[in-house]
């Protein structure tokens, strides 16, 4: 009896991600959820520009490559083309979603667009070799903050879930991580809920995943997972930042 295997929604293409990069884990979780909800045939994924730019080769559902930062707008178009037939998700990095694409993110949330966004927060621009991201932590050394991010010079990292939770629009906002088996299970549950919300027509659901970047953080894969606990989670606390229907049920 097979207990664990590659989900059908993932293709057989080898992932190009660096050794130990947790992008691969999140890809698998999304694919497992798509399998479990039985929606691969209706799902359309929108890949960003960044490390996951070639995500369109890794998912077996129809995929679309969006311009940098524009995935939520592309997804809006795709969803509004066939809202009843298709399940639409975007998979985006922190530069894509919180820097160049911030307006698209905020407005898709404000519209409560019925799409699911998987937001990978690894506090760095990975694909281009390790530059400072809008989520890079104070003091974090990157290629474009070589002396450590100086908040007086270039400001503070953005907490996206908290930022969007102020909006009336979005249905579900949660921050999770994948640096341990326990956390992976919790992350999967959040991702599943985010997709289920879309199936139920509840609207904009975003899951922010604190993810590692061993190569550009200059750490071993193991140390990088620890750094998520030691440095990222204190600044980006895990948890559910908005869950409209749960709040309504609680009334």
């Amino acid at each position: 009896m097979v207990v664990f295997d590659k989900p059908h929604a993932l293709t057989d293409a080898p992932l190009h991600y660096c050794p130990g990069c947790t992008h691969g884990i999140v890809h698998r979780l999304v694919a497992e959820v798509i399998d479990e909800l039985g929606i691969e045939g209706q799902t359309i994924g929108v890949a960003p520009v960044g490390c996951s730019v070639m995500a369109y080769n890794y998912f077996n559902c129809d995929m679309i490559e969006a311009a940098h930062g524009r995935a939520p707008a592309v997804a809006t178009g795709v969803k509004r083309a066939n809202p009843k037939e298709n399940i639409v998700f975007t998979y985006q990095g922190d530069g894509d979603l919180a820097s160049i694409g911030m307006a698209e993110t905020v407005h898709a949330a404000a519209r409560n667009e019925n799409i699911t966004i998987i937001f990978i927060n690894n506090a760095i621009y990975g694909m281009t070799g390790g530059q400072m991201a809008p989520t890079s932590l104070p003091g974090q050394v990157t290629q474009t903050s070589p002396y450590g991010r100086d908040v007086n010079h270039c400001g503070y990292p953005i907490r996206v879930c908290e930022l969007l939770s102020e909006l009336e629009g979005p249905e579900y906002l949660a921050r999770v991580t994948v640096n341990s088996v326990k956390n992976i299970k919790a992350a999967k549950a959040a991702i599943k809920k985010a997709f289920q919300n879309q199936i139920d027509g509840k609207g904009f659901s975003l899951v922010e995943v604190l993810s590692s970047c061993p190569t550009n953080w200059g750490m071993t894969p193991q140390k990088a997972l620890k750094w998520i606990d030691e440095a990222m989670i204190p600044y980006y606390p895990l948890g559910v930042y908005k869950d409209r229907s749960a709040k309504e049920e609680a009334k």
Partner: peptide
């Protein structure tokens, strides 16, 4: 579907989304 986008950039990308289907 009529939608006023947040910018012309967002609008052309919404067009890209529908065109893909």
């Amino acid at each position: 579907t009529f939608l006023q986008a947040e910018s012309e950039i967002a609008a052309i990308n919404m067009v890209y989304g529908v065109a893909s289907t």
